[in-house]
């Protein structure tokens, strides 16, 4: 494997990890506030659909992005209603949201475009362009650093850079701001926040709104950045891989970056080498595809560094008498 191939695989990994990273951070906000979210998949899917539809109709990827965020937020609101306001089962609500997105996107897509759930291909300004960073062309020929800068770091869509910036931003918000302190507190012990005179409900809604926003970015990126348009079930389990990454990262922003990179890399390798020949054994792509899930189960089993979720996660808050 030569250097150029490595760069290509890493470049592909960066593209593939972006939706995972955004969705993973989305889940991080929600779960840190004590609201479990297995509906990341559905929100991403819905966002991908609304983003692609509006981008196609208006010819603007940016309007598509807004629509994507709106679509995802609408489902976040449903999740908030059931898990915060009506204190229902958060897991069941997440399951429902996944199906709702999976059904609605095809139903509406078929009605609007008549392509069996697909949207027409996006062209031109309907997609986010790849951004060439300054001096990318000039530095291309410098050995080692040149390709890394020009091929790996430069040449992604804006949303890729946004996703990477979200990592330090999330860390900063979580650990350096008042909002972050309260958010973490409400996920650990909502009564502490409530007795301090801060509304548990408002905090949790804020968290799931951010979750909806980030899932919206993730979905929009899938449909208008990574691909050119929406295809039925295009998230293909990415929401669950993001969830896996979140557990893998033990609900920490920097670790989320690492986990999603690892999972993105696995996908990139599986795409490039359907049957990875390691000399002694040949690893089928199915194994590479399943690896994120297998790794997560191992982490969950607690044999390698136990993952402890936020203490109040999954429990609706009820004031005790």
């Amino acid at each position: 494997m030569d250097f150029a191939t490595v760069i290509q695989i890493l470049d592909s990994a960066v593209r593939l990890m972006t939706p995972l990273l955004l969705a993973c951070l989305a889940g991080l906000y929600s779960e840190r506030s004590g609201v479990f979210d297995i509906g990341l998949e559905g929100k991403m899917l819905m966002a991908a659909f609304t983003a692609a539809s509006v981008a196609y109709a208006t010819g603007s990827a940016w309007l598509g992005l807004i629509a994507g965020v709106a679509g995802s937020m609408a489902l976040s609101l449903v999740h908030g209603l059931s898990s915060i306001t009506f204190r229902g089962n958060q897991l069941i609500s997440g399951v429902a949201i996944n199906f709702l997105a999976s059904g609605l996107t095809v139903l509406l897509g078929q009605k609007i475009f008549g392509l069996g759930g697909r949207t027409p291909s996006l062209t031109g300004a309907g997609r986010f362009p790849e951004i060439q960073l300054p001096f990318a062309a000039a530095l291309r020929d410098v050995p080692v650093i040149g390709p890394i800068y020009a091929e790996l770091i430069s040449g992604h869509t804006i949303l890729v850079y946004v996703a990477f910036l979200m990592v330090p931003l999330t860390w900063w918000v979580l650990f350096r701001t008042r909002f972050g302190l309260r958010l973490r507190a409400v996920g650990e012990n909502p009564a502490s926040v409530d007795t301090a005179g801060v509304s548990v409900t408002r905090l949790r809604y804020a968290a799931i709104a951010i979750c909806g926003l980030l899932c919206g970015l993730a979905g929009a990126y899938l449909a208008t950045g990574l691909s050119a348009g929406f295809v039925k079930e295009m998230t293909a389990g990415r929401g669950f891989i993001a969830l896996a990454a979140l557990i893998f990262a033990k609900w920490r922003p920097w670790s989320a970056l690492g986990a999603t990179f690892l999972f993105g890399l696995l996908e990139a390798i599986a795409n490039r080498y359907p049957n990875l020949d390691l000399g002694i054994v040949t690893i089928p792509s199915m194994f590479m595809n399943a690896l994120p899930y297998i790794l997560t189960v191992i982490i969950l089993a607690g044999f390698v560094g136990r993952a402890i979720p936020p203490r109040a996660g999954g429990e609706p808050y009820v004031k005790e008498r």
């Binding site: 059931s82 949201i97 709702l100 059904g103 095809v106």
Partner: peptide
């Protein structure tokens, strides 16, 4: 896919929005 939507709504109303 209409039935997926109905299925989702049934789960939502009987399970989460109980």
């Amino acid at each position: 896919e209409l039935i997926v939507v109905i299925q989702a709504l049934v789960i939502l109303f009987t399970g989460a929005l109980d």
